[in-house]
């Protein structure tokens, strides 16, 4: 079974299931997983930091990652075995100096790495930046992430 994770959402799945999110541009897909427990969670993060009392907790890096961690732990992942993979954070429009909105990708990536470091979750692989969109699919039993792009082909990390 493949579960779709929408923009600003997160899901956790187990065993042979997979998690997928489509068309990451400057958004970032973060997966936290434990291969032994075969548990993986995927969040589709849109912005670096949340305003006070937000309801859209998975939309923002600083609220999404601690909550995603909580959810994978609840599904049986072991804290010290959890690793992360980070994909996305592109700058879809090249030559866009000065437009803050357009630089959101790199800012998202930075915020996510800061969160992961604070929570001491090792980043096992990442594919971030560039000027192209990505679709990703995470296999819960292996933690492998399949990345599809229109311009740079497909590959696993």
């Amino acid at each position: 079974m493949i579960y779709n994770v929408g923009m600003g959402e997160a899901k956790v799945a187990l065993g042979e299931d997979a998690l997928r999110t489509l068309g990451l541009g400057s958004c970032v897909g973060v997966t936290l997983f434990d291969v032994f427990a075969q548990v993986a969670g995927l969040a589709h993060i849109m912005l670096p930091s949340a305003p006070l009392n937000t309801e859209d907790v998975f939309k923002y890096a600083d609220t999404a990652i601690p909550l995603l961690l909580e959810q994978v732990l609840r599904e049986g992942a072991y804290r010290n075995r959890i690793g992360a993979k980070v994909v996305g954070g592109a700058q879809m429009f090249a030559f866009s100096k000065g437009l803050d909105l357009v630089r959101i990708g790199p800012r998202n990536v930075e915020a996510i790495f800061t969160q992961l470091e604070m929570l001491r979750i090792p980043v096992l692989a990442s594919d971030v930046g560039g000027h192209f969109g990505r679709t990703i699919q995470v296999k819960c039993d292996t933690g492998e992430v399949w990345i599809r792009t229109l311009k740079q082909g497909e590959h696993y990390i």
């Binding site: 990451l24 849109m46 679709t135």
Partner: peptide, 11 residues
């Protein structure tokens, strides 16, 4: 930009 619709419009 020329790419996936969602990746572009999400901005």
């Amino acid at each position: 930009a020329v790419d996936m619709a969602q990746a572009i419009l999400s901005i």
